[in-house]
Write a protein that binds this DNA or RNA. Structure first.
Lengths: 337, 337
DNA sequence: TTGAAAGCGATACCAC
DNA sequence: GTGGTATCGCTTTCAA
């Protein structure tokens, strides 16, 4: 086992030291069954003296429960997932569960193996937070493990989900842009294969802008494209078609774009307005002032945990899909014109 | 076990379907020992058809290895830990390990239990990223599990560590402030009990400013104090003692302070210069322009993983402490005067 | 109330 | 090469 210098004490060590059977130790430490006060006292002292920590593998193996929820995250460095993580951890701990997180390091294959790692740990429930992994790969385990998809619209019949209504969000932020008087708008458009949610947003934004009678131009914003290239395209559209606003599918991309536009000598918002999507701290802070659509991260995280634990407790529960509305954060990067 | 509708298939199910013994299945799936091509074929097909995922608990129980590194994080929503997490995940996966993360939800007791959860999972190694948990609580497990403290100076004789040289960092950023011509500087000071690293930074900043012959005033920035109160104090010091710069122990606190100063009508940097500490994306981005000390997060994360895996492979390795220098990020919130 | 014994699902060491 | 068997550390009947 994981011994650097000494071995981990086992229940037998505790039993020997306490002068009782391992059954007694098990009962005391797990608080089940009957035992005398004296037994309890002796066991607790022995356990403390030895620094005993029960082996969760052995325990889980026999009990069939780990009291653990596995969280699969696309990208550990994304602030959105970070925020979700914090909320879920909090809520899960209130309900007596731990959250363990794994991530892929980018590719779909990695994510599959990260998911398999969670499954192999026999977590009681699974919360998948990734816009990358195909639903089929997730659904494979759904019949065996309570599974909830969080943060992306997923209407797969075997999977429950909680997510921000991306279409509504795209419409809301597009409305804000048009309402601010912009008639020629650039929309950074992410291919579906890069990220399902971001793709949906771009599409919704473009559609709404046109529906409102303004002009929308899509610019390719595949993940492989450098921000500098995208910024150059934006500048070109400003010159050619008189674009006065740029809409980004995430705050992160917005930040990269702002950086790149800055390098090109373009000032925001006096030269061009820019909007984002996500609205997570710290970019959502007033001082930074991103104009963006704020996802209801708190609710998404909390309800994802509640849903998954609900299904753990009662596997017969039906699949459920909760679409939550986001809100526009005015910010200072979108200027009226 | 974690069954919502069906049970997870076991090695016996695979063996039965493949028409071989479970020993054979084990050999094929773990790639150890000898087996014929036909056996391999049959086993792999049966496993795939059943969607078999080996039970990591059973495996770990007998093999004594989990190929998993536990990461204890103070605060899942902190960008610094988030960045560390991403780097560690990447590096660990290169070396054939998974990272599982747990966090306390704030209090020391929570962190202890989060640590115990990791120990109970019998992770092969432990990386503790928290400025909160006392060294003694960590050291308790060090004789049994390879343990490395990352991101905070920890010279405990039983614990290896990798961290940013906080004192040097504090000096560097203080030098930048004095070099920019500031003679009266406010330092937000965090109590040791709130966060060890942040405390060390404040102390180093104050000391350096005075050493350089400028004036430093400490303001209490305990975690319980609202940013608005701190901002009010700062304004008072600007009026009373003519302070022209404020130094914060973290970028996050800096952001909160900027927000609060903004509310008070104070402009940064024309009314007052502000500096931070950490230098992690996204606040470190050029466009946002925080003047701050950037920690070498990439190296900290990478070396923490290398150290812990080194100790897993060779438990006799001696304890090691690596102090890494940060660099000043000029930014735009520190103005020459 | 307590202890002995039977597994949980895998690996590893055996003979064959 | 292959399959039986002991074993990992614990929970859970089941007798005593």
């Amino acid at each position: 086992m994981n011994r650097v210098g000494g071995a981990q004490p086992t229940i037998l060590d505790v039993a020997a030291r306490a002068g009782v059977s391992k059954s007694a130790v098990s009962r005391v430490l797990s608080g089940t069954g009957r035992f005398s006060d004296e037994t309890r006292e002796r066991v607790e002292r022995a356990a403390a003296e030895l620094g005993y920590v029960a082996n969760a593998m052995a325990r889980g193996l026999v009990s069939g429960r780990t009291h653990t929820i596995g969280m699969l995250v696309r990208d550990a460095s994304s602030m959105l997932y970070t925020a979700l993580h914090a909320v879920m951890e909090q809520r899960a701990s209130e309900l007596g569960y731990r959250v363990v997180t794994t991530t892929g390091v980018g590719r779909v294959e990695d994510e599959k193996s990260a998911l398999a790692a969670l499954v192999s740990m026999r977590v009681d429930g699974l919360v998948v937070c990734s816009g990358l992994l195909p639903a089929a790969d997730i659904a494979e385990f759904a019949p065996r493990i309570a599974t909830v998809v969080a943060g992306r619209p997923e209407l797969h019949p075997a999977l429950s989900s909680v997510y921000c209504d991306e279409v509504d969000g795209g419409h809301q932020i597009a409305d804000a842009v048009v309402d601010a008087g912009h008639r020629d708008v650039v929309v950074l458009s992410v291919p579906r294969a890069d990220a399902i949610t971001q793709h949906a947003r771009s599409v919704a934004m473009t559609a709404r802008i046109r529906m409102r009678g303004a002009n929308a131009v899509d610019i390719d914003a595949s993940f492989v494209r450098p921000a500098a290239d995208i910024a150059a395209d934006v500048v070109e559209m400003m010159r050619e078609s008189g674009a006065t606003a740029v809409m980004c599918p995430t705050d992160r991309m917005m930040l990269d774009l702002c950086d790149a536009l800055d390098d090109l000598g373009v000032d925001i918002p006096s030269d061009v307005s820019v909007t984002g999507f996500d609205g997570v701290y710290p970019l959502a802070s007033d001082w930074i002032g991103f104009s963006t659509l704020q996802q209801p991260v708190e609710r998404i995280g909390r309800e994802a945990i509640d849903l998954v634990i609900g299904r753990i407790d009662d596997p017969s529960r039906t699949v459920e899909h909760r679409s939550l509305r986001g809100t526009v954060l005015p910010g200072r990067t979108l200027r009226r014109r």
